[in-house]
């Protein structure tokens, strides 16, 4: 780049050296990242490998590799569950609930966030403060009054108490997340849409939503994961085993007063991770798809 016209640069050597340092740098970076990764997911690897050992060996053995005692019995036995229902029921229930929660949150929270982030209206500051406030109350204390409310409505032993609140944007976390994202979007886009005569709904659906895909994707992923992993709420509202979700099913494996099955617990925990991972992988591209702010016409 800085070569003058008269002196020819030994480009071959310089670029080879540059390439070598670049290669070394890449290697170092990759190995650091992988190293950190291994440390981080070691427990998961442990869990995965332990799920192939017989239950009683899991307790006593400290080795990582199952070796000779490799068995898939934890998967076949564990799938039957502990009691009347098998994990096919539990997985189905978890899917339905998590799916509905995702839909609810994405729709309701983005709508509320649009209002908070881009619209003006009286009472905005107070309502925003209240929204943030609802994040802060510990969940356990709302548990009993909420239970009374839902049982008066007759919603106990249905999925409704788990799902309907999502459609009413009660997860302030995601409203907050999207407000922060939407605020970063340039106002000009929306203003020009308004000038062109778009109503708020069209602006929201046709301009804001495509621009906010990373935030919506994030909402979808986290909602799915949290709803999937939620234990206490399903425990108290879903009373019949045919409505149990996967976390409840997993807890059935360990009983301090009776028999426990670590093998089943690990095996089913591994299986439980797969939908989560799958959902995450499927949506991570939306997370990635950023906007190029130039050229947006």
């Amino acid at each position: 780049m800085t070569a003058s016209a008269t002196i020819p640069t030994p480009r071959g050597v310089a670029s080879r050296r540059r390439r070598r340092t670049a290669l070394v740098r890449t290697l170092v970076r990759h190995s650091l990242i992988i190293g950190g990764l291994v440390m981080l997911i070691y427990p998961l690897i442990w869990m995965f490998l332990s799920s192939f050992r017989p239950s009683k060996e899991i307790i006593s053995s400290t080795q990582l590799w199952p070796g000779d005692s490799f068995t898939t019995e934890n998967y076949t036995n564990g799938w039957q569950g502990v009691g009347a229902e098998s994990f096919s029921t539990f997985f189905l229930n978890s899917f339905v609930i998590a799916g509905l929660c995702v839909v609810g949150n994405v729709i309701a929270c983005s709508a509320a966030a649009y209002a908070f982030a881009k619209l003006e209206f009286p009472g905005k500051r107070i309502l925003f403060a209240i929204m943030i406030g609802t994040l802060m109350l510990p969940y356990h204390v709302q548990l009993i009054p909420q239970y009374i409310l839902f049982s008066e409505l007759g919603w106990v032993n249905t999925f409704l108490p788990l799902v309907v609140p999502k459609f009413l944007a009660t997860d302030a976390f995601f409203v907050f997340l999207m407000v922060q994202f939407i605020r970063g979007l340039p106002n000009e886009l929306m203003e020009s849409a308004r000038l062109d005569g778009c109503g708020h709904l069209r602006t929201f659906l046709q301009i804001l939503v495509p621009l906010s895909l990373p935030a919506l994707g994030t909402t979808a992923v986290f909602t799915f994961i949290w709803s999937w992993n939620d234990f206490l709420t399903p425990l108290i509202y879903l009373t019949e085993p045919d409505k149990y979700t996967v976390p409840i099913g997993l807890r059935l494996f360990l009983d301090s007063t009776g028999e426990s099955s670590y093998g089943g617990l690990f095996a089913m925990s591994v299986l439980s991770l797969i939908p989560l991972l799958g959902f995450f992988l499927a949506f991570q591209r939306t997370l990635v798809r950023g906007i190029a702010t130039t050229g947006l016409k």
Binding site: V82, R251, L252, D255
Partner: peptide, 11 residues
């Protein structure tokens, strides 16, 4: 029937 683990039963 509504079985659960010991701790969860009381919760």
């Amino acid at each position: 029937g509504e079985p659960s683990e010991f701790g969860a039963h009381w919760e």
